[in-house]
Amino acid sequence: MNFTPQDWSAIRLTLELASLTTLLLILFGTPVAWWLSRTTSRTKPLFVSLVAMPLVLPPSVIGFYLLVFMGPNGPLGQLMDQLGIGRLPFSFGGLLLASCIYSLPFVVQPLQNAFEAIDERMYEAAATLRASPLDRFFTVAVPLAKPGFLTAAVLGFAHTVGEFGVVLMIGGNIPDKTRVVSVQIYDYVEALEYSEAHRLAALMLVFSFIVLFLLYTLNPTKKKAPAA
């Protein structure tokens, strides 16, 4: 495999984006999933639906609204201007935010399912031993939901690596900043450089298979376990 420096740059950028997205989503998605799994509130369907939205929305819708939302006339764009941080489109930060939205259900749903699968009596037993709610979360829920964390992390990471439409719409195709592997492949195909496209496309194919194979080997779905 002779990758060009641009290919390596795209690969590095993609891995950075996917790792950071996964990290952020585990960090912020866990409390959300935990709340969703425990709540009896009547607003639950509302939040479950919101979390699942990126599953059904076309990337063109997410990309278009993010472009408008983060633009100089959009609310987020204006907020960023006031804070003096600089705008998000065409930046790595913008891609990171977009990826977090795009991959959100792939992290939250497996976690929520894993938390929901834990026997209620475990918490009760822990509570009779005077474990505080926080204590119960870290010593009971987290260890028991370990397969859920693995699934969430792997799917979040892989799904971000496989992101294309949204990045294309808000990225601006800038080397080292927003040109990820999927966009680089698209560029090659558009330019009729099919052999260059094949090299990277084959890499993606192999990568996707290995990731999923590892996931299902390390984490076999038991009959009783909810689907991820």
């Binding site: 472009l67 408008v68 633009g71 100089p72 489109p89 065409f90 719409m169 601006g172």
Partner: peptide, 12 residues
Amino acid sequence: AQTHQFVATGNA
């Protein structure tokens, strides 16, 4: 078309 869109939305 996308080039125009970047400018029309004010992002560039």
